[in-house]
Each structure stands twice: as C-alpha cells, then as structure tokens.
Design a protein around this nucleic acid. Structure first.
Length: 591
RNA sequence: CGGGGCGUAGCGCAGCCUGGUUAGCGCGCCUGCCUUGGGAGCAGGAGGUCACCAGUUCGAAUCUGGUCGCCCCGACCA
C-alpha cells in the first residue's frame, strides 16, 4: 500500500477534547474520527488494527471448539421482560419502536437471544456441550461515554455462550474459554492481569476479568505482588492479620455520652472530639431485600456493598433514605451507633480489633465515647465488609496489597441456570428427565484491545503497536522520490516483503525526511525501513524497530532477507514471552 | 442525573470583559519557486450561517434568556 492512497489523516496538534493517551494518539494517527459522544468512525488504519484483533480472536475461539454464529442486534423487548432484565438493565438498554408499534431493543449483550435460540434447538444431552460465539456491534446507552474508544455507545464485542448439561461440563467450558482468552491477549501483545470479579447484574456465581493496568482504566484492581493474588475492588478480600481481641477488657471504664451538636460526619465528630477517625466507627443503614439492616465499620473504612450483601445473604442492598433510617433506629443519620440498636447488624472484622471506639448515640446530637466492642454491643456477626485498600494484608499470603487502575478487556462468567430457568431452556438427560441447561458467558471488548494496546505502549512521539495487531508490519520510507535507484530499491523491498506475507506500507509522499519520520513514529508501525541516496551510496539502508532507540544499517542488496530475519527473531521472542506467561499462570480449577 | 469547563475555517487558538469598518493568527490545504536524514523558507490563493433560537440595540462573535452539542470530575457501568 502506498501512503498517498491510504487516507491517513494525521494531526500535528492534539485535539482539545482528547485527554486519554489512547484517545489522543488514535486521533492524531488518523485511525479514528469522532462523530458524537461515544460514536467513532474507524479510518482505514484503525480498522486494520481492529480486524487483526478480530482475526486472532476468531482463530483462538475456533481452536477452542466454539462455533461462530451471528445473532440479530435488533431484539424484541419481550425477551428482556421474560428474563427479568428489562427492569434490571434500565436506561442502558437502547429501546426503539418499529413499524407496527413493536417495541424493540438494540442488543447490549445476547444472553436472552442465545437462550431463546437453544431452548428450541437443544433437546437432548447428546447435543451438549456446545459453545457458540459471535463478533458483533453492541449498543449501550452509556450515561457517560469516555476516553475515546474505551467507553462508547456502540462497540464491537466478541460474545460467547457455553451450553452445558451439568456443572462438570460448565467448568470444562469455562476453563477452555479462560485459556483461549489468555492466548488471545498474549497474541495481541497486551499486558493483562486476571482478577476475581463480581458477576454483577448479569448474574451467576463465578467470574474473572482480564484487565490491562493503565491510568485510563475505569476499574480498581487490588493485587499482591508477592503471591499473585488479584481481584477487582468489589471482590477483593482483606487479609485477617488484624489482631482480634476475643475477651474485651471488662474493667475498662463505662462508656460516656458526649454532646456533639450538629456534628454529623465522621470527620466533624472526630475533629470536635480531637480523636483519629480510625478510633471511631460508623453505622450504615441499608434496605436489604426491603428490610432495614445495618453495617458497622471503622470510621475511616469504606463499606463494600457486595460483601455486605453476601454477609446478609440477600440479593439486593440499597442505602436507606432518611425517614426510613429514623424509623428503624430512632435517630437521624449522623448519630447512629451499635449500642442498643434494634435492627439486624453485621460488623466488620476491624471493629473487633479496637479496644474502645467512638460511635453515635442513637439520639440527636449525642455520641458515645469509650464504647468497648464485645461488652457494650455483641460481636457475634463479624464479617469482612470493607473495601480492600493499598497497604491492607493480602488474604492469601499476608503480604501487602497494592492498588492499580485497570482497563477491562475481557470477562468470563459462570451463569448457571439464571437464564435457562427464567426462559425455560431445558433438555432431556440420560434418564429422560427434563433438566435446565447450564450456561456460561464470555465477552471481549474488541475496541478496548486497540485502546489498551496504545495505553500500554506509546511514547511522546506516538503509538508503538505490537507486531501482531499493527496496521502494517513494515513502513518503507524512500527519501528521494526523484532518485531512480532509491525508488527501485523501494519497490524491490516492498514486493519481496509482501510476497513473504508481510503488510507493507510505503511512504511515497513528496515530503522532507523529518516530516515522514514524525508521522512514522506517530502511527507506530513496528519496523521502519529507510532508503536514501546517502546510504545507498555506501550500499546500505537503515532498518529500525519502533520500540528501539536506534536502527541498524544493512546491505541494500540483501535488505529484504535481513528484514525477514529480524521479523522472524521478533516473532520468536514474542512466542517465548507468551510461553513464559503461560508457565507462570495457574488456571482456576473447578471447585 | 449532580458539579465544572468549552463551542469562532479541517486542527490549535485570539477577539467577547468595555457592542461599531471587510472577524484575525499559527498549522494544514491549492499554485509557483526553493529546499531535502527528525514536522524548512519565500510569494500568491481558497476556505467562516462566529453552535442554534429568541431578545436588547441605530448596530451583536461581543450583552440577556433559552436550546443543543462536546469534554472533564462524580453517580452509574455486562
């Protein structure tokens, strides 16, 4: 391909709206163009990257035994009502009315459609297991699209669904997808970590996310450098090295009431009393499946609602509003405490480690000082309730947890029978018994692979594409277009490399060398080949890897084979890197 | 949905506070000359409903009100 025909609208200046590195560089490199909030056109170069990622995904999904289908993006809302997700998904679901007054939705994901498909299709255990996948544009009415192509209102997703007869089959299907994902992201050259995750509103009981650590990541990942434990913040456990005091000091002086007029927040109360926030506790009141329930945490800790929900064994927890709180506790928000509380209360483990604590007095403008946990209120329902933070002990090895932000590029779930139960998808087992099918679902945000690759590898001059998904492998830069020898060499190398299966772009623009080098760095093609009069005079041309500081001169008449040797060596190195990663990785086994 | 910011040529911006010729600058684009190993130089040229609507005024890019759009922080997020 010749640059002059390639439609690569590079920008010298950074568009004012772009902040995230991937957004800035993809725009500047002429790979994407914005239409509106969360909607982007992929220009030829950007589309090539997207297609290369898709090709890798397709190869690995096929190799894992999944079958490709293509389901409609346009779906009747009835299916969503049947699964119960019409309400749960809410405004994120893009709804529209078509002729005849039919209410439709543009698919944000396809559990409903796949379940509808297999409830007709799958009649016998002999047809199972089966995994179907598709690569398709999804639609979500995101309240806040962000960071260029990181969060958009329409995006390309690879979604797969395993249909299994029993839990054993599900675990096998899940592990296959998990391993396929590892190979996909390894091959795409994006550095990822795998974290334990909450399954969220999609339902199900086990889940892992594939995250690329980077500053524009929207998720918080908690991890332990020492043992490799990693989880997203919703899920991350706090290690239990906090000393607990099972026998409270019975001889401690009785607690006393203090007047704290108007001091409602933890900070206000602690400042007023001149104590550290970590010596106080807060009582948070929620509606758990509609019934009031409380969580008690250290003043400076944050409640993890997912942990709270599990501790109570309920399916939803929502913060209670002010009237509900007063009715349930007899005191307004800001003065709540555990002493004498009437509603069910679960307590974070950290509370048990506190000899005395400052808490609300369950009366207006009153707090209690010198309250002894275990003496002044029972410590019978201790749980890990708080968000893990940097510096907390690792739940596995006791070492220190760290926090990073991560960009989610893939997610695998065990759904179980959530959808088959709701939508009546059953098969006949060996004994002729009608049984609900068991499902798993597996998603990859394809556009996010592109964004993540840029986030993970760029410098001040531009993008540094991994070889496997680079729009072109080699950029040939002739410096003097009117020099016949230069142009002959250019064509010869272009044909030789193309014949060897490489994607070659030739910068045939009549521009000064510096101009072309700047654009070359910007679009991030991995290998640059410079052909100029000066080098040719000495029988040399220059080849330079984008990720390396300097290039090297090779003999011009054997340049093509030298380049191919470089490419071969680079590929081998990447393969070794992938193999190393696989060795160091433990695949989660079914429990 | 709450908070903040911004809409002037393809891109980056000035002008607005204090209303007044034909709305300006840099980059990019077109023509010519010149130059050629890290975004050169000179000369000439094209390109604008100043986001939109209404109002104030003799007169609005500029003042007022509304609408729309975009970005950032938060809430939300399979």
């Amino acid at each position: 391909m010749r640059w002059s025909n390639a439609l690569i609208p590079t920008l010298k200046e950074t568009p004012a709206d772009a902040v995230a590195p991937s957004h800035v560089l993809l725009l500047r490199a002429g790979m994407i163009r914005q239409l509106g909030a969360g909607t982007y056109t992929y220009m030829p170069l950007g589309l090539r990257v997207l297609h290369k990622a898709i090709r890798i995904i397709r190869e690995e999904m096929d190799a894992a035994g999944a079958l490709e289908v293509l389901m409609p993006a346009l779906q009747p809302v009835e299916l969503w009502k049947e699964s119960g997700r019409f309400e749960a998904y809410g405004d994120l679901l893009m709804k529209l009315t078509i002729s005849g007054g039919h209410h439709m939705a543009l698919g944000p994901t396809h559990e409903e459609v796949i379940t509808d498909l297999v409830r007709d299709l799958v009649r016998s255990y002999k047809q199972l297991p089966i995994t179907l996948y598709q690569i398709q544009t999804k639609f979500r009415d995101e309240p806040r699209p962000r960071f260029g192509i990181v969060r958009t209102r329409e995006f390309v997703m690879k979604d797969a669904y395993s249909i299994d007869a029993d839990l054993g089959q599900l675990n096998t299907s899940y592990d296959k997808m998990y391993e396929a994902y590892c190979r996909i992201f390894d091959r795409c050259g994006v550095p990822y970590v795998i974290v334990e995750a909450e399954s969220g509103p999609i339902g199900g009981d086990s889940s892992h996310e594939f995250m690329v650590p980077c500053s524009t990541g929207e998720d918080t990942v908690i991890f332990c450098e020492k043992c490799g434990y990693a989880a997203n913040q919703e899920r991350a456990e706090v290690g239990q090295t906090e000393a607990t005091s099972p026998t409270p000091d019975a001889h401690a002086p009785a607690h006393e009431s203090v007047a704290t007029p108007g001091k409602k927040t933890i900070r206000e109360v602690c400042e007023f009393l001149g104590v550290a926030e970590s010596t106080s506790a807060k009582l948070l009141v929620y509606l758990a499946d509609g019934q009031p329930a409380a969580a008690l945490l250290r003043g400076d800790h944050e409640l993890n609602e997912a942990k709270f929900r599990r501790a109570l064994g309920v399916s939803t927890v929502v913060p209670a509003d002010a009237p509900t709180i007063e009715k349930a506790t007899g005191a307004p928000m800001g003065f709540l405490g555990p002493v004498g509380i009437k509603i069910p209360m679960v307590i974070d483990r950290a509370i048990a480690a506190m000899p005395t604590v400052v808490v609300g007095g369950n009366a207006v403008d009153v707090h209690l000082k010198g309250v002894v946990p275990g003496r002044d209120f029972p410590l019978d329902r201790l749980h890990d309730l708080r968000n893990a933070e940097a510096g907390d002990p690792c739940p596995r090895c006791g070492s220190t947890l760290e926090v990073k932000s991560g960009l989610e590029i893939g997610h695998v779930f065990k759904l179980g029978t959530k959808y088959s139960k709701a939508m009546g998808a059953r098969y006949l087992d060996e004994k002729g018994t009608e049984t609900e099918i068991i499902m798993g679902c597996y998603g990859i945000g394809v556009n996010r692979i592109v964004a993540a690759a840029v986030e993970a590898a760029h410098d001040a001059n531009g993008i540094i594409w991994p070889f496997s998904i680079a729009p072109y492998h080699v950029l040939v830069v002739p410096l003097q277009l009117q020099n016949a020898a230069v142009m002959e060499r250019t064509s010869a190398i272009e044909s030789a490399l193309t014949a060897a299966g490489l994607d070659v772009l030739v910068d045939d623009r009549d521009q000064r060398p510096g101009f072309k080098f700047k654009d070359a760095d910007l679009i991030g093609v991995p290998l640059r080949v410079v052909i100029g009069e000066r080098g040719l005079k000495d029988g040399q041309i220059e080849i330079k890897w984008r990720h390396e500081e300097s290039g090297l001169a090779v003999a011009s008449d054997t340049a093509a084979s030298a380049i191919l040797a470089q490419v071969e060596a680079h590929r081998r190195k990447h393969d070794d890197w992938c193999a190393d990663r696989r060795m160091g990785r433990s695949v989660p086994r079914a429990t």
